[in-house]
Computed example of a mutant assay.
Amino acid sequence: MNGPYLALILGLGSRAWTDHTIIDTALTEVWHDARQDGYSGIEVMEGTAPGADTMCGDWAKARFDHGIGHLPVEADWEGPCADSCPPGHRRTRRDNTEYCPLAGHRRNQNMVDRQPLIALAFQVGQSTGTADCLRRLAKAGVPTRRWAA
């Protein structure tokens, strides 16, 4: 569904975010604004984490028939580390599977590098993943609207 007429919107936030109404209102407003600016719709990009990310994705999927796209961008937790990862930093879960603790940061940079028109951030407390993405968005100059709970 991605095309030149869809505005790319990044929805991100804390795993502890629970307020569906705020997300619904924020995405609906951005959708209407994009339509007013000449876009045929929006594509909601999100990082697939539970909480705010998933809620943004669910909002988009429920409105597919209205010209809204969905772009999930997953972190490759179990995959190989990047060349920039420090040696020996991989961690082991309780089920003995290893993962790269920096995979979420790489996913965040991947989303920022796609140059969304705007980012909508829904943060509870000092969520580290959300804070990391917000720093990357600010550095890239991506306009960001924030809500806190």
Rank of each mutant, 00 (worst) to 15 (best):
W77N: 06
P116W: 10
D113P: 11
E46G: 02
W77H: 03
P50E: 00
R114K: 12
A131M: 09
D76M: 08
M111G: 10
A49T: 05
W77E: 01
S84W: 14
V30H: 02
V73K: 09
Q123H: 07
L102P: 00
V30S: 07
R93F: 15
R94Q: 08
R136K: 14
G79E: 06
D76K: 01
W31C: 03
E43N: 14
G47H: 08
A82T: 06
G104V: 02
W31D: 07
N96R: 09
I42L: 09
E78K: 13
P50M: 01
A119T: 04
D65F: 15
R90W: 04
W77T: 05
N110R: 13
S127D: 12
G79V: 11
A62Y: 07
Y39F: 15
G41K: 01
A34T: 04
T128W: 14
R114W: 12
S40V: 08
L71H: 10
G69Q: 03
D37C: 08
P116A: 10
G67V: 12
I68T: 02
R91W: 03
A82S: 13
P87S: 08
W59D: 00
H70S: 13
T92I: 12
M111H: 03
C100P: 01
V44M: 09
D76S: 07
E98W: 15
L120K: 11
F64E: 02
A49R: 10
A103D: 04
M45E: 03
F122T: 01
G125I: 01
V124G: 02
A82D: 11
D33N: 11
W77I: 13
R135A: 11
R93N: 15
F64N: 03
R107A: 07
P72T: 03
R35E: 13
R93H: 13
G47D: 01
P50F: 02
A52Y: 10
V30L: 12
P50R: 09
P50W: 02
D132K: 04
M55V: 09
G69I: 02
S84V: 06
L102E: 08
L102G: 04
Q115L: 14
C100S: 03
A62E: 08
F122Y: 06
A131H: 02
G69K: 14
C81D: 07
D37N: 15
F64T: 04
A62N: 05
E74N: 05
C100R: 06
